[in-house]
């Protein structure tokens, strides 16, 4: 296990800037690609892939209008907070062959907490904008947040617990889970029953992603046809642009988390490459994995179904997905106690 506690501040700052740039760029590119995916599934051509860049450029060049009823400080702070916290999540997640910039300073539990911060920023911004649509949207966002926490927590805990049961040190560290340094993954640790459990948990995580990102079917807080944009209804110009960027970064972060938890393989584990070539190959493979995750957990889900009511979000996430997650957890627990395929 590589401990990074002694890392010097300069490389942390450098790493942070690099990750922030990567997050924003990749977020916009993946949003463009995702729109293209969705368009082709709907038999459309869709906008060009560079469209999100144009959108952001245009939004950032425009004035932000603060409504009369809004609380200006909170209203203007929310988008900054959302973008900043989205980038911070990325600092804790391994990106391909690269270890997390802040590995050793925080683990999976922290990431779970951080994931709620952009949503909370949205909620605060929605309440601060003083519009009935935004208020309803904020209430719904809070309900959505509470709904997907349980399945997400189950998925995360199950993985860390299985690694701990397999006797691996520091199981909550994302670097450990992704096996960046060791090459040990959950799939190699688990036996057949455990693999079934992990597949169930993978499905759960794929379903948590649209809720986390407020996309159809869980875009109830924004619900264009009901609340005309809900939370974001009063946002315009720069502030909306920042939320747009935050959405992109968050998409990358969620997909990267799914990759780190469930699809950790790297090309360099199987093909002998020089260290630099390995980094490049692993990173390219990582981007490919992100695209696959986004395709299935964002595009296919959002294109393939109608929007839920907020009550459905609660019952589906607590009931069905919570149940599915617990079933997966049970499989993993049984697998560990039977000692199937363990590394011990």
């Amino acid at each position: 296990m590589v401990m990074m506690l002694g890392m010097d501040p300069i490389s942390i700052i450098g790493g942070t800037v690099a990750v922030a740039l990567f997050g924003i760029l990749a977020g916009l590119v993946f949003m463009g690609v995702e729109r293209k995916f969705a368009a082709h599934m709907q038999a459309r051509i869709g906008p060009p892939i560079r469209q999100p860049f144009r959108d952001v450029a245009k939004l950032l060049s425009k004035d932000s209008i603060v409504p009369e009823n809004a609380i200006p400080l909170l209203f203007n702070m929310a988008p900054v907070l959302a973008l900043a916290s989205s980038i911070v999540i990325l600092l804790y997640i391994p990106l391909g062959g690269f270890l997390p910039v802040l590995a050793g300073y925080g683990d999976l539990i922290l990431v779970m907490y951080l994931l709620t911060v952009p949503a909370l920023a949205l909620v605060a911004g929605g309440f601060a904008s003083g519009s009935p649509y935004a208020t309803v949207g904020s209430q719904r966002e809070m309900v959505t947040m509470m709904s997907y926490e349980l399945p997400l927590a189950i998925a995360v805990i199950a993985i860390a617990w299985r690694l701990a049961a397999a006797g691996i040190a520091d199981p909550f560290s994302l670097a450990t889970i992704a096996g960046t340094a060791t090459g040990i993954t959950i799939w190699s640790v688990a036996g057949p029953l455990g693999i079934i459990g992990f597949v169930l948990l993978l499905i759960v995580l794929a379903w948590v992603t649209p809720a986390e990102l407020s996309r159809v079917p869980c875009d109830t807080p924004e619900a264009e046809t009901e609340l005309c944009g809900g939370l974001l209804v009063e946002y315009s110009g720069r502030n909306l642009g920042l939320f747009y960027l935050a959405q992109g970064v968050k998409t990358v972060a969620m997909a990267a988390l799914a990759v780190a938890l469930f699809l950790p393989w790297n090309i360099s584990w199987y093909v002998a490459l020089s260290p630099n070539a390995a980094l490049v190959a692993d990173f390219a493979f990582f981007l490919l994995k992100l695209m696959v995750v986004i395709f299935f957990s964002v595009s296919v889900i959002r294109v393939g179904m109608a929007r839920f009511r907020i009550t459905h979000v609660v019952s589906i996430y607590w009931g069905y997905l919570g149940g599915l997650g617990l079933l997966g957890l049970l499989c993993v627990v049984l697998d560990a106690s039977l000692g199937g395929g363990g590394m011990l």
């Binding site: 368009a39 082709h40 599934m41 709907q42 038999a43 459309r44 869709g46 296919v300 294109v303 393939g304």
Partner: peptide, 10 residues
């Protein structure tokens, strides 16, 4: 939609 994904847009 998965079938349509492989077809040409309309």
């Amino acid at each position: 939609i998965l079938r349509q994904f492989l077809k040409r847009p309309a």
